[in-house]
Design a protein around this nucleic acid. Structure first.
Length: 401
DNA sequence: AACAGGGGCAACCGCTTGCCG
DNA sequence: TCGGCAAGCGGTTGCCCCTGT
């Protein structure tokens, strides 16, 4: 049975011959593919348009990178999959030259097995029950990671080790390639140890800025629209730029939320206090809007944050313009409205309005969190928090949190 | 050398989404 | 608002090749 789109015509199926490839390439390079259904006819191919499209996208496109996946690509796939699940097209966007089909096949044939061999559930990235028992004596979600740093306690079979797969890393050389600077391939999400004051996030995309202080440095190019001084600083920076103190993220205090990230470490996870999902999600978001250099000020009344500017504390809403003027990326507004230790929240990331609406639950909701995932903006992120110790399957991470 | 089994990969299938009249 | 069409996407299938016996 052929595709419905080509049921009227006699079409060839199966592997493509070199002659067919040549015809397709020649036609596409000369005329483009404004309408795939007409491509086979004009190119002189006995194929349906859908088949031509697939062949072009998965095999003939000139910008495709062939060959085996690098270790870095593998890490990226694992990291992004941890957040996005089986969204191969989204994952592939983080790997220039790779197709969703290729990523999917690589996952199914290779990575999946590696994860299983490491005692991880490839669907959730959680430790499989048997492995949990082995490694941690059965520690559950939300429990403290014995290591205290939130890193997973497994070792890659190929020696890449936890360094690659446990700290959250996202690559986005695809977008970076559009810049005039060689793109850093990986970004770490690193949080300085001092969690006092407001929160500042920055994305060091071009190595131009090393951000590690608890407060925005004088003259720091990212505007602090909230007018707050000190703050917890979250730096999205080149992995190669060095190591900042603590490797964990701590956005939420006192919450009993759990996430797949935590589970990775048998309960400890990304966050040293057992609250790690937001950070990873944020990283995904930040990455996708790769050129985004952000300063974000914590919402007023945010639980667990001290030293907030008095004025800021009175504000109910803060908008932070996240703009990458240098590379001309469309401005993105990051809106956070707080309510202190709210118990529920919603997050809307809507590409059309370039707005992120992060309610306070992101920071500390100890109970239910209802995120309205209006988008994964070409893969952006999910901000998850709270959860009250609920389960943390990937599906839940994405849709229920 | 021949065969069987498994793995990897290209291609297909069918559902969803977005666009347009 | 609705229906048709094209494209996008994830899951699945089937073929080919490699390896072990």
């Amino acid at each position: 049975m052929g595709h419905h789109c080509c049921s009227k015509q006699k079409v060839k199926r199966g592997l493509w011959s070199p002659e067919e490839d040549e015809k397709l390439v020649r036609y596409i390079s000369e005329h483009g593919h404004s309408c795939w259904s007409s491509v086979p006819k004009h190119a002189g191919l006995q194929r349906c348009g859908k088949s031509c499209r697939l062949r072009w996208i998965n095999y003939l496109r000139p910008d495709l990178k062939r060959g085996t996946f690098s270790e870095q690509e593998e890490r990226t796939i694992i990291d992004v999959h941890r957040i996005l699940g089986n969204r191969w097209a989204q994952i592939a966007k983080h790997l220039p030259g790779r197709t969703d089909n290729e990523v999917k096949n690589f996952w199914n044939s290779c990575i999946k097995k590696k994860l299983i061999a490491q005692g991880l559930d490839p669907k959730t990235h959680n430790l499989l029950p048997a492995s949990k028992t082995l490694l941690h004596g059965g520690g559950g979600g939300g429990a403290a990671n014995p290591s205290g740093n939130g890193l997973a306690q497994f070792q890659s079979s190929n020696g890449a080790a936890a360094a690659g797969t446990t700290p959250f890393t996202i690559s986005s050389p695809a977008k970076a390639a559009a810049y005039d600077v060689a793109p850093p391939a990986l970004y770490d999400v690193v949080l300085p140890a001092n969690p006092a004051g407001g929160m500042l996030m920055a994305h060091d995309h071009h190595h131009h800025h090393q951000v590690a202080a608890a407060a925005a440095p004088v003259g720091y190019p990212y505007a602090d629209h909230g007018g707050n001084g000190g703050g917890v600083l979250m730096s999205f920076r080149d992995q190669n730029a060095g190591v900042h103190g603590a490797a964990s993220m701590d956005f939420m205090n006192g919450s009993s939320s759990s996430s797949s990230m935590e589970q990775l470490g048998g309960g400890g996870g990304m966050s040293s206090n057992g609250n790690g999902s937001f950070s990873a999600s944020m990283a995904a978001f930040m990455d996708e809007e790769a050129a985004m250099w952000a300063t974000a000020v914590a919402p007023p009344g945010m639980g667990g944050l001290a030293g907030m500017d008095q004025v800021a504390q009175q504000q109910k809403q803060q908008q932070v313009l996240v703009q990458d003027a240098a590379v001309g990326v469309a401005p993105t507004t990051l809106m956070m409205h707080g309510g202190g230790a709210a118990t529920a929240g919603a997050m809307v990331v809507d590409k059309s309005v370039e707005m992120v609406d992060v309610s306070s639950a992101v920071y500390g909701g100890a109970t239910a969190t209802a995120f309205d995932l209006d988008l994964m903006v070409e893969s952006c992120g999910m901000f998850c928090g709270g959860g009250g110790g609920a389960g943390n399957a990937m599906e839940q991470l994405q849709w229920d949190c």
